[in-house]
Simulated assay, not measured.
Amino acid sequence: MSARKIVHVDMDAFYASVEQRDREELRGKPVIVAWRGKRSVVCAASYEARRFGVRSAMAASYAERLCPQGIFIPPDFTRYRAVSRAVREIFLRYTDLVEPLSLDEAYLDVTENKVGLPTATRVAIAIRQQIREEVHLNASAGVAPNKFLAKIASDWRKPNGLFVIQPAEVEGFLAPLPVGRIPGVGKVTEQKLARLGMRTVGDVRARTLEELQRHFGRYGQRLYELARGVDENPVVPNRPTQSISAEDTFEQDVLLSEMEPMIRRMAEKVWAASRKEPRSARTVVLKLKTADFQIRTRSVTPTVFPASAEELASVALSLVERAPQAPGQKFRLVGVGLGNFSEPEAKAEGLLFQE
């Protein structure tokens, strides 16, 4: 087990909370940060809106049906980035080992901290208090011996919570968790694990490395380690995003001509995730996996980058025409991604979500 002390800090409903902080009339109301319209996706939803089932990356039109009384606020990324910088400055008072994941969450390695606090828990308490006092927002935090566990812990008592997993508690904490809490275990892998009799992390831990590798290939090694709470990935400060992507593996193989709804859904997820990245992507990627597990990718760097999820989907769909296929060939997976990130050009951020 690693001797590291890791804190994962996750701002609660970040964009929506900034809006509620700055506009008193929005407090306690179901706030949805998104442009209205079928071409928009939800960037964030307040906890009042989440009670109606509204979630990030959801189509704004669907969110409006779920929560007719929702108050739609257009995103203001310039303001969100300023708040994110203020929060990051607080992190840096305690450690230089800060790895931002997006504008609203980050890993901190506080194995050694700048202010001499005796425990990582005390560091997390101090950080959350300073965020509340200086930025006037709530943050949840998880404290654990590694990144994998710290991220699970930060979600454990959301919103506005703190949860600590001590090294001696790792095995007992993980054992009853559903396998879906393991990073990399999506719907399809979860179903495969269930067919093999593994529904909890404890079930996975009971299997040998050889058995997991036989069924899951190289990912079997990762499953074996995470089920035991082992994650040696270090906190890497200032690591730039290489790509943002979303994939879907189908329960039944489909023809390329049947994929448009799936591609549009993946584009919505990628678009919403990209709004949390301070830099701009230049390249759109389409990934396909055939029924016999051959991977094909196509990419394009458009002269004018998509300005909405709908436009991103259109570019991805244009790449379908460039994907070679045999008559009647079927596919088991589709993915949409963004890559080739660079610093954003000076432009009006608010225009990004307009139709």
Score class of each variant (00 low, 15 high):
Met1Cys: 05
Arg4Trp: 02
Ile6Glu: 01
Asp10Asn: 04
Tyr15Gln: 11
Glu19Ala: 11
Gln20Thr: 14
Gln20Met: 15
Asp22Lys: 15
Arg23His: 13
Leu26Ala: 11
Arg27Tyr: 08
Pro30Glu: 01
Pro30Gly: 08
Val33Asn: 14
Ala34Thr: 13
Arg39Ala: 07
Ala44Ser: 15
Ala45Glu: 02
Ala49Trp: 14
Arg51Thr: 06
Phe52Cys: 13
Arg55Pro: 05
Arg55Leu: 00
Ala60Val: 05
Gly70Pro: 08
Ile71Thr: 11
Phe72Ser: 13
Pro75Gln: 00
Phe77Met: 12
Arg79Ile: 12
Arg79Cys: 02
Arg81Ile: 11
Ala82Gly: 05
Ser84His: 12
Asp96Tyr: 04
Leu97Asp: 04
Val98Ala: 10
Glu99Gly: 10
Pro100Ile: 02
Leu101Cys: 03
Asp109Pro: 05
Val110Cys: 00
Glu112Phe: 08
Val115Phe: 03
Ala120Cys: 11
Ala120Glu: 12
Thr121Cys: 13
Ala124Gln: 05
Ile127Phe: 10
Gln129Asn: 13
Glu133Leu: 06
Glu133Asp: 14
His136Asp: 03
Leu137Gly: 09
Asn138Gln: 05
Ser140Ile: 02
Ser140Phe: 08
Gly142Ser: 08
Pro145Tyr: 03
Leu149Phe: 00
Asp155Pro: 12
Trp156Gln: 08
Lys158Glu: 02
Leu162Gln: 04
Ile165Glu: 10
Ala168His: 03
Glu169Arg: 06
Glu171His: 14
Phe173Ser: 01
Leu174Phe: 07
Ala175Gln: 15
Pro176Lys: 04
Val179Met: 03
Gly180Trp: 01
Thr189Ala: 01
Glu190Ile: 02
Gln191Glu: 15
Arg195Lys: 12
Leu196Trp: 00
Gly197Glu: 03
Met198Pro: 10
Gly202Pro: 07
Val204Phe: 06
Arg207Phe: 13
Glu211Val: 15
Glu211Trp: 02
Gly217Ser: 04
Glu225His: 14
Arg228Asn: 09
Pro234Tyr: 07
Pro237Asp: 08
Pro240His: 04
Gln242Gly: 14
Ala246Leu: 04
Phe250Ser: 12
Asp253Cys: 00
Leu256Glu: 08
Glu258Pro: 01
Glu260Ile: 02
Ile263Met: 09
Arg264Glu: 11
Arg265Thr: 01
Lys269Gln: 11
Trp271Met: 09
Ser274Gln: 05
Arg275His: 00
Arg275Asn: 05
Glu277Gly: 00
Pro278Cys: 13
Arg279Leu: 11
Arg279Ala: 14
Arg279Pro: 01
Ser280Ala: 15
Ala281Asn: 00
Thr283Pro: 13
Val284Phe: 09
Val284Tyr: 07
Val285Ser: 04
Thr290Lys: 10
Asp292Asn: 08
Phe293Pro: 00
Phe293Ile: 10
Arg298Phe: 09
Pro302Leu: 05
Thr303Gln: 13
Thr303Trp: 07
Thr303Leu: 14
Phe305Leu: 14
Pro306Asp: 03
Ala307Lys: 11
Glu310Lys: 09
Ala313His: 05
Ser314Met: 10
Val315Lys: 07
Arg322Ile: 00
Pro324Arg: 02
Gln325Arg: 09
Gln325Asp: 00
Ala326Arg: 15
Gly328Lys: 11
Arg332Tyr: 00
Val336Ile: 06
Phe341Ala: 05
Ala346Ile: 06
Gly350Glu: 12
